[in-house]
């Protein structure tokens, strides 16, 4: 059995109370949403907290709204199942609905939240283990150690970003509102473009700190010819984190000619990877025409060359690289379908 370490639990009902409670914990406080990531990580003791601030009572953090411009404004506490099944999300942001529908298993999607998946911690075979297991092997860069068990001599943690929602939100050019307790220097609020959220350090792969609460996810309106898809490689058809995840976006004109294309890959490294050289090859191709088939073949090669999975999550990393072109093709097929 894996028991949780002791902590003080707070159950605020407003954003302001929640961020103040975490601020008051001086770096030892954590926000708790659905708990499907934080609770196992606390049990494994690579995240430590004296104060856990449960967000479930904050109604302002819930809900999916269609904006006046035709985009989406999503409360981060909205459950994954509500995102996946939302007709508005399926229509405006199909890649997000598809990606979220593949996250973990049915129970996790009931409990887990979209904000929690955006803020998901990185994963590595050498960290998602009990404290006893990790202490036996020797601690690593992610927590308490100075060595990396994946990259010999590595100085920076390479634990993999494993959130299925991230590549979809990246292709959708989402923006994120964060809020922390106000100080004499400012009101604590800021908005980040989705691409600005991540950095290439698996120990903590976000550019926001743990006392900043994600308060809203904005997705701009997508054009009439918008198509989005997601394809996920995993060992089993359920429960598993991605061994590779590919989100594809195609915006086509009235004739079916691709005006804008974007492909973002997850579970390769500590941050999502945009394969820009690959997706650029699709622009100008026409769906259903020979030009698309030619472009697709070139895109698959280019994506393969740009993606380099590491041997730190299950599945042989060379096999995972071989799967990159296949899953790029599947994500595009899912977008067009």
């Amino acid at each position: 059995m894996l028991r949780l370490p002791q902590f003080t639990l707070e159950r605020p009902t407003t954003i302001e109370e929640a961020i103040q409670l975490v601020a008051d914990a001086n770096g030892r406080g954590r926000f708790l949403a659905g708990g499907t990531d934080l609770i196992p990580n606390l049990k494994h003791e690579f995240i430590e907290a004296d104060v856990v601030v449960a967000l479930g009572g904050i109604e302002a953090l819930r809900g999916i709204e269609v904006t006046a411009e035709g985009g989406l404004s999503i409360g981060p506490l909205t459950s994954l199942v509500d995102i996946a099944e939302s007709a508005d999300v399926q229509r405006i942001a199909p890649a997000l609905a598809q990606a979220v529908g593949t996250i973990a298993g049915p129970q996790h999607r009931q409990m887990g939240t979209i904000g929690g998946n955006v803020m998901l911690d990185t994963r590595c075979q050498w960290i998602n283990q009990s404290h006893f297991w990790r202490s036996s092997l020797g601690f690593c860069l992610k927590k308490d150690g100075s060595a990396c068990h994946v990259v010999e001599g590595g100085k920076r943690c390479v634990a993999a970003a494993s959130n299925d929602s991230a590549p979809a939100l990246a292709t959708l050019a989402a923006t994120l509102d964060f809020q922390k307790a106000p100080t004499e220097y400012g009101n604590g609020k800021r908005t980040l473009a989705f691409d600005e959220l991540f950095k290439a350090d698996g120990a903590w792969n976000k550019k926001v700190s743990a006392d900043e609460l994600l308060t809203r996810i904005h997705i701009p309106a997508t054009p009439v010819g918008h198509k989005g898809g997601y394809a996920k490689l995993r060992m089993r058809g359920s429960i598993d984190f991605p061994l590779l995840g590919v989100a594809a976006r195609l915006d086509v004109d009235g004739e079916g000619v691709i005006e804008h294309a974007d492909i973002v890959v997850i579970a390769l490294q500590a941050r999502p990877l945009r394969v820009r050289k690959a997706s650029a090859l699709l622009v100008g191709a026409k769906l259903g025409a020979a030009s698309y088939d030619d472009a697709l073949a070139a895109v698959m090669v280019a994506a393969y060359e740009q993606c380099h999975p590491l041997p730190n999550i299950p599945g042989d990393h060379e096999w995972r690289q071989e799967m990159v072109p296949i899953y790029v093709k599947r994500a595009l097929a899912a977008a067009i379908a």
Partner: peptide
């Protein structure tokens, strides 16, 4: 730790994992 589903209970009628809920 939320991998197996053995601890599934229904919360407001929906299956959830009691090992991951405070």
């Amino acid at each position: 730790k939320g991998d197996c589903g053995a601890c599934t209970v229904l919360i407001d009628g929906k299956p959830q994992l009691s090992c991951l809920i405070l």
